[in-house]
């Protein structure tokens, strides 16, 4: 049965000194796709600056804010409503001929078409010594291998907050074996790409009602392209396939393409940012 979600996103920024000029770009609006029907967005900021709805370089919806007065504190509040269809992650025709898929991913045309999601980026580059950390078992299908990789990542890394940040790269994550959803996702993407499978980093919201790992901010998971099937969502932080609880905002090569908030702020001194996200759902009456 479809669920109706309401999501509230709040951010508050405080600065030690006056901010004379600032630009923000939010990438927090859920996308419209086959399983998500987007109903509405309300966005406000405490300075009553104009909120401009636009897109980023990859075509995902953004909100830009550029206050015309100086300030020391600014807060933003967004609320979204959307209807999420019930997602059955296994609702697809499995690969009939495994070797055909393995053959396909070797083809030049395939590699060129998915070039963006096969290449190494800053956050998806494996240290040389770890390149064979996870090898696909060619007797199993690509999908099965990805499921195993999902579980492998889940068990290999311990979920722990505040030990990594948005700058942490894979060498550290592999060495220390802990991190948050973003780190799980980068590792999953890197290892799948290493095996020739295009993967995308996905940012979104996770409905936490079910005791999943995540944090009270944003969630991240991966999408992998399986020939003959298409893009499938994997959540290595929770060892799950993306389902009705996963509300997607955007995807990209890695975190850099999807960071929920980009800001250019001209000020000096310290600053502090607080984010909270609340996801609530109710069964939609039919």
């Amino acid at each position: 049965m479809p669920l109706e979600y309401s999501i509230t996103y709040k951010a508050e920024n405080t600065y030690e000194h006056w901010v004379n000029d600032a630009h923000w770009q939010f990438l927090i609006i859920p996308e419209n796709n086959a399983s998500q029907e987007f109903v509405g967005v309300e966005f406000t900021n405490s300075l009553n600056a104009i909120n401009e709805y636009s897109i980023n370089g990859y075509g995902f919806k953004t909100i830009r804010v550029h206050p015309k007065q100086r300030f020391k504190t600014i807060s933003f509040e967004a609320s979204f409503r959307l209807i999420k269809k019930e997602v059955n992650p296994f609702d697809f025709q499995p690969e009939v001929d495994i070797s055909k898929s393995y053959h396909r991913i070797q083809e030049l045309v395939f590699k060129v078409d998915y070039e963006s999601f096969l290449k190494r980026t800053r956050f998806t580059t494996l240290p040389n010594k770890n390149e064979s950390l996870f090898q696909f078992d060619r007797t199993k299908s690509i999908f099965e291998n990805l499921q195993i990789l999902n579980e492998w990542t889940f068990t290999h890394i311990y979920f722990k907050t505040d030990v990594t940040d948005v700058e942490t790269t894979l060498d550290e994550i592999i060495a220390k074996r802990h991190g948050v959803c973003q780190d799980f996702t980068h590792l999953f993407c890197a290892l799948a790409r290493q095996n020739g499978i295009p993967t995308r980093y996905v940012s979104g919201y996770l409905h936490q009602g079910n005791g999943y790992f995540g944090d009270s901010q944003m969630h991240a998971w991966a999408e992998a392209f399986v020939p003959e099937i298409g893009w499938l969502g994997f959540d290595p932080t929770n060892n799950l396939l993306a389902n009705t609880s996963h509300i997607k905002i955007a995807h990209g090569k890695d975190y850099n393409d999807c960071s929920p908030l980009k800001g250019i702020v001209y000020t000096t001194g310290k600053n502090e940012t607080k984010h909270t996200v609340k996801v609530a759902s109710q069964q939609q009456q039919q």
Partner: peptide
Amino acid sequence: DPLEFKPDSTLGVPGLFAAYKK
């Protein structure tokens, strides 16, 4: 465009790439 590319660029225009893409 510091919002799309190098974030510490003071030479560009925030939002320029979105205008271009559109």
